[in-house]
Design a protein around this nucleic acid. Structure first.
Lengths: 347, 347
DNA sequence: CTGTTAGCGCGTTCAT
DNA sequence: ATGAACGCGCTAACAG
C-alpha cells in the first residue's frame, strides 16, 4: 500500500491527472459526471494531496513561522491562541519555534548578544521552510531592532518592537490612565504609583498615563508617591512599605505588575494595614494568581488574545502586499475584584 | 533580485547543480578546491536551500505536528517546551495546531463528538503537510480511543491516552503514594483524601496510591475520610468543611488538585482552623497560584517538561521504526512549602 | 466547454 | 564532476 498520488486517482477514474487537479481545486469546469467519478475514487482511496508538491509549484506554503521567546512565560500562550484563531480562519498553518529564552539566558534578555544567534538561526530555518512571514513574540516589551534579518520576508513583532517593522502592542498609556480614572471615580485623590524598571518602555508609557490623569483630574502631585521597582515581589513589598510609612500616605497605589502587587499585599498585611479598607491597590497583567490572593486583586488585563489576532492580521496584510492601515492598538481592561474600595473618610 | 536557487550557485561557481548539492549536504566527496569555490558563492549570494523542494524528493520533512487541545490551559505550554527542546536537538520542526477546546466546547470535553471533526481535520491537514508524526496533547487525562485516524502515521498521546497507541503519562499512583509517605514521615496517621471526579483515570490511580500507602504504613482507614469532589474550588471548600466537621477529624488531607486545595484553605480560614498547625494540606498540579496562597501550599509538581521530551523521544523512535522500549514514565515531585507540618500532639 | 499532454518548480541522486 | 531523470501536483497549450 504505497503512498497514493494524483496519478493513481487519474488511472482509476480513467481521466488525466490534469482533470483530477481541476476537480480538486475547482480551477476549471469539469463535466459533473466526470467530476463525480473522480470524487468517488478520491473518497475510496482516501486520497489527500501532498501539500509539499503543491507548494513547490505554487510557491505558497500557507504557513507562517511563529517565534516565541519563551512559550512558558505567562503572556505567550494566549497570544499564540489569538494567532491561531485568525490563522485557522484563513487556512494558514503555524510553524512554531520556541527560543526558550528563560531557560537559556535567564532574565538578562536585555543583552541581545546572548541569543542573537539563536534568534537568527530560528529565522533562517523558517525561511528555508518557506514560511510566508514571521511573528515574533517577546517575553518583555523592548526594542529588538537589528536582532534578526528576515531578508525581506514580512515580520511582525508583538510584545516587543523594532524600528522600521510592524509591531502590535497594547496601549500602556491608556491603561494606566484608565486605572487612575477608575480610582478617581471611587473617590481617591492621593494616588501613588510603583513602576517597573525605567529601562522599560511600558514603565515610561504608564507613567505618562499616570501624569496625564493627574493633570486631567487635578490631583495633588507628591514626588514621594513615585516609586520605581524592579518588577519583583520583594521590591513591591519594600516600596509599598515605604509608601505606607509616609506621614501622609496615599489612599491608593497603582502597581505596574501583579507580582509587585502581591508584594504590596504582604507588606500591608505585615503592617496591619487592611486592603482595600485602608489602602486600595490596582495591579497589572491579570496573572492567574492575582485572582487567588487575599484580597483578590483588581488588575489590568492585557489584551493578549487580541494582540495575537491583530499580529496575524497585520502579517496577512503584509504578505498580501496590501497597505496596512492597521494602526488599531488593543486596549487593556480593568478587571474589578476586591483590592479597591472608596477611601476612608479622613477627618 | 529574484529568488536564487541551486542553479544560480552552480552557474557562478562553474560547476553542475549536482556538485553544489554534494557540497551542501556532504553527500559525496568533492575536491577541496571546488568545494571552497562553491561555498564562497553560497556565502556571497546568501543562498539557503529550499526545504520544500528538498522534502519533495527526499520524502522527509523533518517536521512533526503537535495538536494541543488547548494551549491556554496551564499544563500545555510546558509540555510543548519539552517537545521543543528534544525537537531542536534533533533538527525537527513543529507544526502547531491549537484546537482551542476550552473556548469551543467549554468543559464538556467528555463528549468527544463535539470536537471529533475538528480533531480529525487537524490531523488531516497535518498529514497533507507531510508531517512525519503527531503528538496530541490533551487538556485532561482521558481515553481518546478512536478520536482520530492518522492512517498509519505514528502518533503519541500525552496528558491523555488511547488504546493501541503510545501515550506518555506521569505516574499518578506513585505520586499520591509519595504524598502520603511524606505526610507519614511528618507524623501523620489520620489522613483524608479529596479526589476529583471518579470518571477520571487519574482520580482512580491516585486512590490506588493512597490505599496502597495506607496499607504499607498500616494507617487507620476511615471511610469518612474519603471524599469525592469535582475538581472545582467550591467542591474543595465544601468537602474540606465536611472533613473538619467530623467528630474525629483528619490531621492531613491530600487533595487532588490545587484548585480544590485553594477551596479547602478558604474553608479552613472560615472555620478558624489554621493551616498547617491544625491541619496539613497537600495539593496537586503545582499551579502558579499555589505559590501565592496563604499559606503557600505544598503540592505535587507534574513533570510536564519531561512528558514533552519523552513524547518527542517516543515519536522519534516510532518514526524511525525502532522498537520503542520507551516505558519510562516520569514521576511527580513534591514541592515542599508551607501547608504541611507535624500534627499537633493530641491529648 | 471539457479533457489531455507535457513541462515546470528545485533539489537529489544514479548512471556515465 | 556532470547530465538528466525524478518526486508530485499545477497549469499553459492544445485538441476534440
Amino acid at each position: 500500500m504505497d503512498k497514493i498520488g494524483i496519478k493513481d486517482i487519474a488511472l482509476r477514474a480513467n481521466v488525466s491527472t490534469a482533470t483530477v487537479s481541476y476537480v480538486l481545486n475547482g480551477t476549471r469546469n469539469v463535466r459533473p459526471k466526470t467530476k463525480e467519478r473522480v470524487m468517488k475514487v478520491i473518497e475510496e482511496l482516501n486520497y489527500r494531496p501532498n501539500d509539499i508538491a503543491k507548494s513547490l509549484k505554487s510557491k505558497r506554503t500557507n504557513t507562517i513561522g511563529v517565534i516565541a521567546e519563551d512559550i512558558t512565560v505567562f503572556n505567550v500562550p494566549e497570544i499564540i491562541d489569538g494567532i491561531n484563531e485568525y490563522a485557522e480562519q484563513n487556512d494558514m498553518h503555524i510553524l512554531l519555534t520556541n527560543l526558550r529564552l528563560q531557560k537559556r539566558v535567564g532574565y538578562n534578555y536585555t543583552d541581545t548578544d546572548n541569543y542573537r544567534q539563536h534568534a537568527q538561526d530560528a529565522v533562517s530555518n523558517l525561511l528555508s521552510k518557506q514560511v510566508e512571514g514571521i511573528i515574533y513574540i517577546g517575553v518583555h516589551t523592548r526594542d529588538l531592532s537589528g536582532l534578526v534579518n528576515t531578508y525581506d520576508k514580512p515580520i511582525v513583532y508583538t510584545y516587543c518592537y523594532a524600528q522600521h517593522a510592524c509591531s502590535i502592542q497594547y496601549n500602556d498609556e491608556q491603561a494606566s490612565y484608565d486605572a487612575i480614572k477608575y480610582l478617581v471615580s471611587k473617590g481617591h485623590s492621593r494616588i501613588a504609583i510603583i513602576s517597573g524598571l525605567m529601562d522599560s518602555l511600558p514603565s515610561r508609557l504608564r507613567f505618562n498615563g499616570y501624569f496625564k490623569a493627574l493633570t486631567d483630574y487635578q490631583l495633588e502631585f507628591d514626588p514621594q508617591f513615585i516609586k520605581v521597582g524592579d518588577w519583583g515581589l520583594d521590591s513591591g513589598y519594600q516600596l509599598a512599605y515605604e509608601l505606607i510609612q509616609l506621614p501622609d500616605p496615599p489612599t491608593a497605589i497603582l502597581i505596574m505588575n501583579d507580582l509587585m502587587a502581591a508584594g504590596a499585599l504582604k507588606a500591608a498585611a505585615a503592617m496591619g494595614i487592611s486592603i482595600p479598607e485602608d489602602l486600595s491597590i490596582i495591579g497589572f497583567d491579570n496573572r492567574e494568581f492575582s485572582n487567588y490572593l487575599s484580597p483578590r486583586i483588581t488588575t489590568m488585563d492585557l489584551p493578549l488574545h487580541d494582540m495575537g489576532i491583530l499580529s496575524m492580521k497585520a502579517l496577512t496584510n503584509l504578505i498580501r502586499g496590501e497597505e496596512q492601515p492597521l494602526d488599531m492598538i488593543p486596549l487593556c481592561h480593568l478587571v474589578e475584584r476586591e483590592s479597591v474600595s472608596e477611601p476612608r473618610k479622613s477627618t
